[in-house]
Nucleic acid binder design. Structure first.
Length: 269
DNA sequence: ATGGTTGATCCTCAA
């Protein structure tokens, strides 16, 4: 079973690339972030005609998460208990969607961007991660689980092109790294890093300043898995080709191959 | 060429 995560930076502007990518990569489950669209504008049919079921959670032009699967899409749930609310909003932002696909509880996550070290968004980000950690610790006991998406954190110095550049910026601060580490400490395993060690292994390159062309990226998109799933991961790939050319997202898809659990019955196709 | 973004929406914000 092939499982991937991809911050597409607008599903409506990226749909042709996403469709072409699904057709050539043979991915079974794709967790999507930054759909940047309302529910009624989401291109559901483009996934369905390829044989994928798809669930989406999004309110407006910000955030938005989705899961596409051709190995079942059951028990879809948007948002986690205790997710903090930004500002005066009625409810939490659209940053989490879960569904059970091929026997694995898939969580598509778009972690808030802290913007700057002293920005209120940073406190929001840390609190969001703390509450996520509290919930995810419980999910581990429920069965095979994966947490995947755009974490907006570079956990190690080697995960950014220049620590000198980032030392006073978001993504690398001790608070953010501790919040990420707390999720690992809860029992989740980064299933990509062991197969694709750094340095200079990135998943995101800013559109500005020709960062991709200069090899100046960040590793901020991660697939974490419960130990039972982690032990079944046989391969990993960051598809840098998708960052090339006109109309690319600023993030590349990250893909893992997970050996099928013979005890699991796939519920569709 | 000594620089250099993109997307959704609105007349700017977010990343």
């Amino acid at each position: 079973m092939r499982i991937a995560t991809w911050n597409v930076n607008s599903i409506r502007s990226r749909i042709e690339r996403v469709v072409a990518w699904l057709e050539r990569t043979d991915v079974d489950v794709l967790a999507i972030q930054e759909t940047k669209t309302r529910e009624d504008q989401f291109p559901f049919f483009r996934f369905e005609e390829l044989g994928y079921e798809v669930a989406h959670h999004g309110y407006n032009q910000w955030n938005g998460v989705a899961i596409a699967s051709r190995v079942g899409l059951a028990d879809v749930r948007a948002g986690f208990d205790g997710a903090p609310i930004w500002g005066e909003a009625d409810g939490p932002e659209a940053r989490h969607l879960a569904a059970t696909c091929g026997g694995i509880r898939i969580n598509s996550l778009y972690v808030p961007n802290g913007r700057h070290l002293l920005d209120p968004h940073m406190d929001y980000k840390i609190e969001w991660l703390r509450r996520l950690r509290d919930e995810t610790a419980d999910w581990l006991t429920a069965g095979p689980t994966m947490l995947m998406g755009d974490w907006n954190i570079a956990p190690r110095d080697e995960d950014v092109w220049s620590m000198e550049f980032y030392e006073d910026k978001s993504h690398v601060s001790p608070r953010e790294r501790a919040a990420f580490q707390a999720i690992l400490d809860a029992g989740y395993v980064d299933v990509v890093r062991p197969l694709l060690p750094g340095p200079k292994v990135y998943t995101y390159w800013d559109y500005q300043q020709l960062r991709f062309q200069k090899g100046r990226g960040m590793r901020i998109d991660f697939l974490l898995a419960s130990p039972d799933v982690a032990s079944r991961v046989t391969a990993a790939m960051i598809d840098r080709e998708e960052r090339k050319g006109k109309g690319a997202s600023d993030h590349a898809p990250v893909v893992v191959e997970v050996a099928m659990d013979a005890s699991v019955e796939v519920t569709s196709e």
